[in-house]
């Protein structure tokens, strides 16, 4: 669990916690601005039909990152999302949203 891995290794449905950023320069700044700092939770929510990029749920926003960029975000504690989002939403709200 202590060994970190690239964010790009997450499969859809898995989530993890950011341990450190390896990227440098402009993309590092950009990732920080999106809230990807150590300790942030990230969930992989989907992969493009062509296999790259993948979409990640970061602080309530879905952001697509290319594999090469996501590899620079190191994460630990990958696990399937314990509680699917559906269960947290009251039925009434879900109806209204649908």
């Amino acid at each position: 669990m202590n060994r970190d891995m690239g964010l790009s290794a997450l499969a859809p449905g898995e989530s993890a916690t950011v341990s450190r950023l390896m990227a440098s320069g402009g993309i590092r700044r950009r990732l920080q601005d999106l809230g990807l700092i150590p300790g942030a939770r990230v969930e992989c929510v989907g992969i493009s039909p062509l296999g790259d990029p993948a979409a990640y749920l970061i602080r309530g926003t879905v952001i697509a990152l290319r594999r090469a960029d996501a590899a620079g975000v190191r994460v630990v504690g990958c696990a399937p999302e314990a509680a699917p989002a559906q269960s947290g939403v009251p039925a009434s709200v879900r109806r209204a949203a649908g």
Binding site: E43, V45, L57, G60, V62, G88, V93, A97, G98
Partner: peptide, 12 residues
């Protein structure tokens, strides 16, 4: 106060 994590089941 949020009921979900911002990515609604419908959007999913």
């Amino acid at each position: 106060q949020a009921a979900d994590n911002g990515y609604s089941p419908r959007d999913r």
